[in-house]
Design a protein around this nucleic acid. Sequence first.
DNA 1: ATTTAGTATTTTGTATACAAAATACTAAAT
DNA 2: ATTTAGTATTTTGTATACAAAATACTAAAT
Lengths: 224, 224
Amino acid sequence: MEQELQSVTLTSQALERLRQAILDGRFVAGQKLVERELCALTGASRSILREALVHLEAKGLIERQSYRGFTVALLDEEKIKEIFELRTILETQAAELFTQRATDEEITLLKSTFRKLEDCEQAFDLGEARQIKEHFYEILFDGCRNREIKNALSNVTDRIYFLRSQLMMDENRRSASLIEMKHLTNALATRDRWAARATSLEHLQAAEATILAQLATQRISQAA
Amino acid sequence: MEQELQSVTLTSQALERLRQAILDGRFVAGQKLVERELCALTGASRSILREALVHLEAKGLIERQSYRGFTVALLDEEKIKEIFELRTILETQAAELFTQRATDEEITLLKSTFRKLEDCEQAFDLGEARQIKEHFYEILFDGCRNREIKNALSNVTDRIYFLRSQLMMDENRRSASLIEMKHLTNALATRDRWAARATSLEHLQAAEATILAQLATQRISQAA
DNA sequence: ATTTAGTATTTTGTATACAAAATACTAAAT
DNA sequence: ATTTAGTATTTTGTATACAAAATACTAAAT
């Protein structure tokens, strides 16, 4: 009677793999996604692949032009500012909600996850650090007790996430980022509503400034 | 050389029609969407239809279970509260941004659109009133100068929009709603940042309360 | 050498066929 | 009469074939 194991379809697998490939920065921003090539790459048929492409288009991760196919979304300075404005609205609010709604267990978990992040950064284990950072934010967003906010935030972070792999953070920015997150963690752990908003905002503004600076540098080197 | 007229594909047409059908409340919440039936209804082939379905699923308007197809998303009280919490965050912010960024032309347009809305309400032209209300909000969201916020708001309003057609607003609520919007319009037109937030919040909370009350009534009548 | 017009190839859009799972149906067993 | 097991039908998942548009290529004209 029951069918607990929801059979994983090829479509859902292809979708997740394609999404991950884009987030990992395996395509250059603006790059054309040729269906035949993706089929060869993934072994999936066109119908499977197209469902994945249409899904990612609806989420805004890729773009589509009729009879010209899909391309990885290209972000200019204006778009990045818009995305960050939206992200800031949501993420500062998420931080505030966390202080009001997270369980004590979640706070403990958040603190221990941040300590792990510190260890990884000290050991220069950057790949691992990235994963832990994602986990940190997952705990934070779950603590809001609002899946809609979490989902909206995921959409918006996905769309700028792949920039990470294309522009490298330097040592200064990495240590500054860690300090900002330490302040955020403290504010969240003590359930300090306004400090949570403030530290979250600080971190977001610094991240945005870094990305915009990197983008300007890239543009100059491309023009040369 | 140029191909300005972007040829409208059958897929994009089917997507828009299906989306509109859902927003118009032509399917009951929770209803199964059988592909064959939709094909017969729209005259589209399955491949066309499926692209539209996958797109709408990615946007959260419909849901999917493997080998069991698509259903119109079913909203319980908790989900509605979550959606409204997100919408409130975005829409109050949008109102504030409008006061800072809208052009004088947009303010003039907003005011005249609100006057049209008043006329329709007085004439009991409800269908027309609904369209004008949508236009009012489009002007408001455009005035934010942030397409990301506008898009996120569209997604979130789409998901609760079809409730409108299933639960009828009574006369009291309609006139109260109009007064709230009058206050909002005044705040926006005078570029009063905090009043815009406050009146927007007031309107949203009243709308949420109405929907939740209606939902409770429906549940009782269904149980009987 | 560069442009241009025409043709060939590739790519996307669309329809359909087949496979696998879910559901509806039937008849036997209690 | 109700449950249960087995079978038929429907529905979704997946692969592929054909059509239409875009792109790449070729050769003629200036």
